[in-house]
Amino acid sequence: MPRVETVDSELERKIDLRKLTKIYGGDRPVAAVSDINLQLAEGRFAAILGPSGCGKSTLLNLVAGFESASHGSVTVFGKPVVAPGPERAVVFQEANLFPWLNVFDNVTFSARLKGAPRQHYQPLAEELLAAVGLTGFERHMPDQLSGGMRQRVGIARALLMRPEVLLMDEPFGALDAQTRLQMQQLLLDVWEKYRKTVMFITHDIDEAIFLADVVYVMSARPGRITTELQVPLPRPRTMSVVTSGTFNQLRVEIFESIGQHRQ
């Protein structure tokens, strides 16, 4: 019988959104997201692509548990989402580090909340800081770091929680173009190492294709998923894939999909 149990739990190990709708109240209710159905299996990297105001951040907030659904359900790895929790780590648009804590204390904040002894989290913290290229910056304060470095701290902080899923809300949106490319590559390198299930919100078509296994294209008002595109680019990926035919083909498909759904 244990075999059946394994199968069961494997089936449940996914992000599962069913008929998910979020309506903001008031005299004229507005649906930020509407009727979203999405199943993302463990270890997959999904990009949610859409213009600003299409509700893609609302979608992420619903999965994170920062907001609650008006209709439909959010289930992550078999558990219905009712509140934020450490099994769903978030990397924010602005890094949202605690400015009074140094890099190391920011990265290890979640472990220290649980009262874990230092020897339990220090090895992983050092490993993650090395993975994001911040060895030697442990004692720096957030104000002393560049935007890209702050986001690297945010990524290390999220991974230290050993989360089931990683929710990333346009984490590179505020960075300059060059830093953004560096961060995309760095994220892929880190992801290859830890293979978390990722939901990555972006408005950047190239970023979505470069990073993800599957791209969900959203349209605005109400926010719906209009297209689901598999990205068959081989991994591990480097920047050179952006010149490949497959990459360009996907770009064209996404452009066409956006064009079709524009009013």
């Binding site: 949202n96 904040f109 929680m161």
Partner: peptide, 26 residues
């Protein structure tokens, strides 16, 4: 206070008491 910092602490599993002492107070 920056409510996003409260969200960051919430997603890391902070209790209401920890939010008060480790986020709001500082």
């Amino acid at each position: 206070i920056n409510r996003q910092l409260v969200r960051a602490a919430l997603m890391m599993g902070a209790t209401p008491r920890q939010i008060m002492l480790r986020v709001i107070v500082p």
